[in-house]
Amino acid sequence: MKKTILQQLFLWPFILVTSLVYAADGKLLATAGLTQVEGSGGGGIVPWATLSGYDSQEQVSVSAFNTHVSVDDYQLNVIGLATSFYDRVEFSIARQTFDLPNSVIGLGLGDEINQTIYGLKTRLYGDVIYSQFPQLSFGIQYKKLSDGAIAGAIGAAENQQGVDYYLAATKVHLGAVNGYNLVWNLTARATKANQMGLLGFGSQPKQDHQLVFEASLGVLLSRNLAIGVEYRQKPDNLAAFKEDNWKDIFITYIPNKHFNITLAYADLGNIAVADKQQGIYVSTTGYLW
């Protein structure tokens, strides 16, 4: 953990410098959104229809992000890169490191769970601000566990890899809330993933993809500050490990098209028998190109 944070501290000045020189800037401020916890362009826990960078139809963008979630009994650290081409296609890669509590480490299955998520998203229709109907995108997230020992031990049907498919609609309504801009997103996801895949995919009785819904709602208080809420429905596949829906309330500061930071209070419910997991979510995205 400490090492990762230290590495990131060294990384940010570099990102800032390349960002100031090269970063795509063709979208309006804040319309690139953020990077969600699985590495796709989004809100915080929900993938959105927006693509990850500030590239317009003539530009290419590259962004890097880091997310840290610290709830009562667990910590999750995510780092990743995303690249977006002509505001049409986004590729992302994210590495999730889930720190296990001592009670689990004692079982001898390792002290963390690592998962790599490869994302692909394509914008199907529209523009988040200008089109009459919401911007619409389709995406997939291919999730690969580094070590399936824990997922296997707790009864996941598949302990190596899984694929999520999602359709997201996002819209900004200019001045809709007494002059303040309103943004909403609705995502339908087909998934087998237990706790995003960290606990494997499916279970013996529940082996199929399930349809879940995810939503975000936010208000931009100024050009640089947004507040909002998110909700993410989750499957509940594992008999011994109840899984709850996720919620968060967030505040995001977007000083410019090079950098943004989000602070959230997340309620993740039951995670691997530890109930009522609540805590802080911090995420930063830097735009390199």
């Binding site: 200008y130 200019l174 001045g175 002059g179």
Partner: peptide
């Protein structure tokens, strides 16, 4: 800021 957004909303379409 809120009035700016209302102006932008008029011209965005």
């Amino acid at each position: 800021h809120p009035l700016q957004n209302k102006v932008l909303a008029v011209f965005a379409p």
